[in-house]
Computed example of a mutant assay.
Amino acid sequence: MTRPPLVEIAPAKINLALHVRGRRPDGRHELETVFAFCTDGDKLTALPADGLSLTITGPFAAMLDDGPANLVHRAATALAAEARVGKGVQLTLDKQLPVASGIGGGSADAAAALRLLTRLWGADPAHAAKIAPELGSDVPACLLSMTARGTGAGDALELVDAGVAGTPVLLVNPLLPLGTGAVFGRWDGVDRGPLGDWRQGRNDLEAPARSLVPAIGDVLDWLGKQEGVELARMSGSGATCFALFASEEARDAAAAACPDRWWHLASFLR
């Protein structure tokens, strides 16, 4: 009997709020943020194999390299080395989320690989937790995929109850990739204050992101006009924006009305 593949979802990440407080000595930025995660995202499957291979499918597959530089590939290689696993794996990534879009992307996929391979190889979860920060600042949060407050470079985490579990959410992206480095490069360096209640917060990267991709403003304006919207903001460094809705019906109506030129995902927060 053929063994069925193990499956792991890489949930889309959103930043309910994101305050940039300054630049750290290591060149990264001091952040205060609240991470939340959708019930939907990319999908990673794994089968035992002699070597390590990665195949990418889905609507955004063509935008990714499936070689050793891919974060999923890197996560698998690092975990095998850290856990001293002499086993291979055949990985398939179904890429449903836009690339370079501020909703986790490669970080979520890498974290999913760490969770999936920890199960497949019977590794100690501590190995995945050790590797995660080395793969990227958002990978520790994506490894948890639970609502958390992030400080430091975003990788010092504290689980919180933000009161958003089960909230209908609509993600919208103008299909214009936006690199995180470019957005941080446009940040004006002004500390606009700490993050308290995320509902009263902001995304300090919105202004620099909009200067690079003005269509972000169009998306936010459109989301803000939809019936039943309780909050609309940009996530991470963009260009994906999100709206929280009062009801599933209101979210679905907005999803149906979303312009065809934009990507969208109707989901719930975990």
Rank of each mutant, 00 (worst) to 15 (best):
A112L: 10
G154N: 04
G163Q: 09
P133Y: 02
M146C: 11
T167V: 14
Q96T: 10
V190D: 10
A108E: 02
A207T: 04
V99G: 11
L170H: 00
L159E: 02
L178K: 06
A165M: 11
G105V: 07
P214N: 06
R115H: 12
L220W: 01
G105A: 11
A128Y: 14
L114Y: 11
I103Y: 13
A129Y: 02
Q200F: 15
A156G: 07
T92E: 13
D197R: 08
T92S: 13
L93Q: 03
A148N: 03
A156T: 09
D218F: 05
R149I: 09
G136D: 02
L135Q: 06
T118A: 15
R192P: 04
V99W: 00
G102A: 12
G163C: 11
C142W: 07
T118K: 13
L116N: 08
A132S: 13
L117V: 13
R192H: 10
A207Q: 06
V183M: 04
W121Y: 05
A126Y: 05
T151Q: 08
Q200H: 15
L143C: 14
I131M: 12
G185I: 00
G179E: 11
L97C: 09
V139H: 06
G163A: 04
T180R: 03
K95W: 07
T92H: 06
G166T: 03
P208G: 04
T147P: 15
K87F: 00
S145H: 12
L212I: 04
L143N: 06
A148S: 02
R186Q: 07
R186N: 01
D197Q: 09
G86C: 12
V219E: 00
I216Y: 07
D109A: 02
L143G: 12
D221G: 15
D94I: 09
G181A: 13
L117N: 04
A207C: 07
A132I: 09
L171I: 11
A123W: 07
W187N: 10
P98R: 05
S101G: 13
A165D: 12
S107H: 00
E134D: 07
C142I: 10
G193M: 05
S101I: 15
A153W: 01
R199A: 15
G152K: 03
A108Q: 08
R210C: 12
L144S: 15
D109Y: 01
A148H: 05
K87C: 13
E158P: 10
A112F: 15
T180I: 09
G102I: 14
P140N: 00
V160A: 01
D161N: 12
D155V: 10
G105E: 02
G196Y: 01
L195A: 05
I216T: 05
A148C: 09
A111S: 07
T151S: 14
L144A: 12
D138E: 01
D188I: 14
D218A: 03
L120H: 02
L212S: 07
A126K: 04
V213K: 03
T118C: 13
Q200A: 14
H127T: 03
A215Y: 02
R199T: 13
A129C: 04
G224F: 01
V190W: 07
R149F: 03
G86D: 03
V172Q: 09
L223F: 06
L176A: 15
S107C: 08
R84H: 13
